[in-house]
């Protein structure tokens, strides 16, 4: 199976605390990988290192390599000249606790589509509609509730 994410020699420090030490791990396309460990063992930190979300915390230092297969290209997440915003747009992340903005569900969906991808209102509606048609019934309820009638 094709490698999707390769982590090599990854160490992450939060201030003086070393959270990850020399981690080597591979994630393959189409495979489900489960990370198991006690609270505070660095599972989230490892995930966040893939799209460099750790950088948003103050006092974080990262060493090692994270390689992502994006399309036909192998991209170094911590390489020089990496467009971090583009990396985060491509390597999406679902948080443990949903980070919903204090706004309607529709607005939550539309915000990144509008401002990050620059889609028009019609395109946004189209995508929402498409998501609606392919979603589970719970998700569908949520979107139907959020769509103005």
């Amino acid at each position: 199976m094709e490698q999707l994410i390769t982590v090599a020699g990854l160490s992450v420090w939060f201030g003086d605390t070393r959270v990850l030490t020399d981690v080597d791990i591979e994630f393959r396309r189409g495979e489900v990988t489960a990370l198991i460990g006690p609270s505070g063992s660095g599972k989230t930190t490892l995930l966040r290192s893939v799209n460099r979300m750790n950088d948003l915390f103050s006092g974080v230092r990262t060493e090692g390599q994270v390689t992502l297969a994006l399309g036909d290209e192998a991209v170094q997440a911590y390489g020089n000249g990496m467009d971090v915003a583009l990396l985060r747009r491509t390597a999406g992340m679902v948080f443990q606790n949903p980070n919903v903005l204090p706004a309607s569900i529709r607005k939550n969906f539309a915000l990144p589509l509008k401002h990050v991808l620059g889609l028009s209102r019609d395109e946004i509606d189209e995508r929402l509609e498409a998501t609606l048609r392919t979603s589970s019934s719970g998700m569908m309820c949520a979107i139907v509730w959020a769509t103005p009638r």
Binding site: L56, A85, N97, L101, L111, H115, V116
Partner: peptide
């Protein structure tokens, strides 16, 4: 912190995160 992570996790730039979130 969860709100702060929201913008970047969607690929927003720092200015976009600030302005939109």
């Amino acid at each position: 912190m969860s709100i702060r992570l929201l913008g970047p996790s969607l690929g927003m730039s720092q200015t976009q995160t600030l302005r939109r979130v």
